[in-house]
Write a protein that binds this DNA or RNA. Structure first.
Length: 561
RNA sequence: AGGGGUAUAGCCAAAUUGGCAAGGCAUCUGGUUUUGGUCCAGUGUACUGCAGGUUCGAGUCCUGCUACCCCUGCCA
């Protein structure tokens, strides 16, 4: 029976692999790869791909390569290489003893290009970029053959060598595959194999001034590494015939390309270009801003690797374009942190409560459990005294029905402390409530009496005398609408950024929170999960709101009000 | 003279060779609770995009539609 719970959901890619295995393809090997281009930070959509590729390899006893698809030095850098490695590692995946780089195969790519030329399958085209574009045709009309299309293999071989040797300027000519300028698939209209770019590469430096295009390089990379199942996103479906064409013409090991739908999430954007815009135009503080859907952002927000892996498993894999509700991601982090996060008391919007019958000078330490979900986490001690803060929300002068919290003449429990009863409401000259006078029941120490009294409401609190101040960054969705790409004429997607998606508050916390290690997860009791930020300094903790607790009371209020 | 894809509940998404349409998220309702959290139990007329056809039987097979997504970088 318990096996049933461990069965992971199936998907069409696993079905293909199972079938291949059953048919004895690839000698029973399963080999995948995760091939990021180091031109930006990884985001939650990449996490889906990482989990898929590494997950499938693991499930079928295969391997998964981490490979940097670094064929365009203009856009790539080591900064991105390093961030990608860090993120993949953090997610919990191990790519083995070596990492792979397309740039390690540049020599091999060149040899393959020479072979294509010799076989009459490629030619050097001296048309200008504009001419090439012009002659490519349109979606409805076929393209026109280049006037250089019929150069002899000997001539092409010589020209290709000159390209490699830097005899030409950028854009002066390209190497093209000789396929079919009238193909209904535009990718097959003599696609470019090599372009000239006198650009320094972050790994090969100035060794090369010609760089291979994706379509030529990618299948070869897969082939060289013995990849069996080359999993990519839907937009490459049109490229598959080309992927296959190169491998066939070259007569090398032929991996199978399989496409799946990339992840979309509500209330955020996922394209590298848009994420870059958010960073460059200052809508966020950087790639790791906790509102960003980047791995680095989610990590800083307080998401755990387990929660993201679980999310990836949960949402499944298919070929249908879809948009997953952000609430599903939030469910995953709540589920994980509920088991792990220590509970602490932090008041974010304080209301002073004076307990008039509690001795002026008295202080006492009270036991508080660290996590009701895990008794092994033990207890800690919290100082209590005559004046405490509670949340403003936890008091109402004229409460609606079913309000369990504090109100005039009513009793409420201070968690782990005492029952208190509101005797008096103190207001300032504007009528604003500034302070509550309450009495406590000494017999309720620990928050319980055996007299059958029903005190339904329980609130968190901190002792004013002992509390420390903490900076708490309250995050909401970065965008005001679930689909940030929906916009009126003349608007851009950044017009949908919510200027209030970050609110910084000064909160009052239990004293032991004064010194926190960054990246520690807590549950602020009755509020949500919070994670200490790297900006924390000794005595000056900073917390990021990871996600709020479910709040059925607030929901009920909103729907009835 | 276009090509390539996709359609199963509000959102994801399963469904051996055709055989009673899984599961999760969200929602709502109870119960438990020293967190209005967690947990537990329950909660859905899904004409499986539409219209036909084959069949004892169709989400699965056939025909014809419709809607949406992707493709005209010397990006990946």
């Amino acid at each position: 029976m318990e096996n049933n719970e461990d069965i992971k959901p199936s998907n069409f890619i696993k079905n293909i692999i199972r079938k291949d295995l059953a048919e004895g393809k690839n000698d029973g090997r399963v080999h995948t790869r995760f091939p990021p281009e180091p031109n930006g930070y990884l985001h939650i959509g990449h996490a889906k791909s990482i989990c898929l590729n590494f997950g499938v390899a693991e499930e079928f006893g295969g391997r998964c390569n981490l490979r940097f698809d670094d064929t365009n030095p203009l856009k790539e850098s080591v900064e991105y290489v390093n961030s990608i490695k860090e993120d993949v590692k953090w997610l919990g995946f191990d790519w083995g003893e070596k990492e792979f780089y397309a740039s390690d195969y540049f020599e091999k790519f060149y040899e393959c290009a020479v072979q294509l030329v010799k076989d009459g399958n490629a030619y050097v085209d001296h048309q200008s970029p504009d001419e090439i574009k012009e002659n490519r045709g349109t979606l409805q009309e076929p393209g026109k053959n280049s006037p250089f299309r019929d150069r002899t293999p000997q001539e092409n071989e010589k020209l290709l060598e000159q390209m490699k040797d830097g005899k030409f300027a950028d854009g002066e000519c390209v190497l093209r595959a000789k396929i079919d300028m009238s193909s209904p698939n535009i990718n097959m209209r003599d696609p470019i194999i090599y372009r000239i770019s006198h650009t320094k590469h972050h790994r090969t430096d100035e060794k090369w001034c010609i760089y291979p295009m994706y379509d030529f390089a990618h299948g070869l990379e897969d082939s060289i590494e013995g990849v069996t199942h080359s999993i990519c996103t839907l937009e490459f479906e049109d490229h598959r015939p080309l992927y296959d064409w190169f491998l066939e013409k070259l007569g090398v090991f032929h991996p199978q390309q399989i496409e799946f739908a990339r992840l979309n999430l509500t209330y955020t954007v996922m394209s590298k270009r848009k994420l870059l815009t958010l960073v460059q135009e200052g809508y966020v503080s950087g790639w790791d801003d906790p509102r960003m859907p980047t791995i680095a952002g989610l990590r800083r927000r307080g998401y755990t690797p387990e929660s993201i892996r679980n999310f990836s498993e949960m949402i499944g894999v298919s070929k249908a374009n879809s948009k997953v509700d952000f609430a599903q991601l939030e469910y995953c982090i709540r589920e994980d942190l509920n088991k792990k996060a220590q509970r602490v008391m932090v008041v974010t919007d304080p209301l002073k409560v004076v307990i008039t019958n509690y001795p002026e000078d008295k202080e006492e330490m009270l036991d508080a459990e660290n996590n009701p979900e895990n008794e092994a986490d033990g207890t800690r001690q919290m100082p209590f005294s005559r004046v405490v803060y509670i949340e403003k929300d936890d008091f109402m002068e004229n409460p609606p029905k079913k309000y369990f919290r504090l109100s005039p003449g009513n009793e409420m429990r201070l968690k782990h402390a005492y029952y208190i009863k509101c005797e008096d409401v103190i207001k300032d000259e504007n009528g604003e409530i500034v302070e509550l006078h309450c009495t406590y029941d000494p017999k309720s120490r620990g928050g319980w009496t055996d007299d059958g009294r029903r005190v339904k409401g329980t609130a968190h609190w901190v002792s004013v005398k002992h509390a420390i101040k903490a900076e708490v960054r309250m995050y909401e969705h970065l965008f005001t609408i679930d689909n940030p790409d929906r916009r009126k004429k003349g608007e851009v997607f950044t017009d949908n950024v919510d200027p209030e998606s970050l609110k910084v508050v000064t909160a009052y916390a239990e004293p032991f929170l004064s010194e926190v290690q960054p990246m520690t997860h807590y549950q602020f009791l009755r509020i949500g999960y919070f994670t200490s930020d790297k900006d924390s300094k000794p005595g000056k903790p900073v917390f990021n709101k990871t996600v709020g607790l479910k709040d059925t009371w607030a929901k009920k209020q909103a729907s009835s009000g």
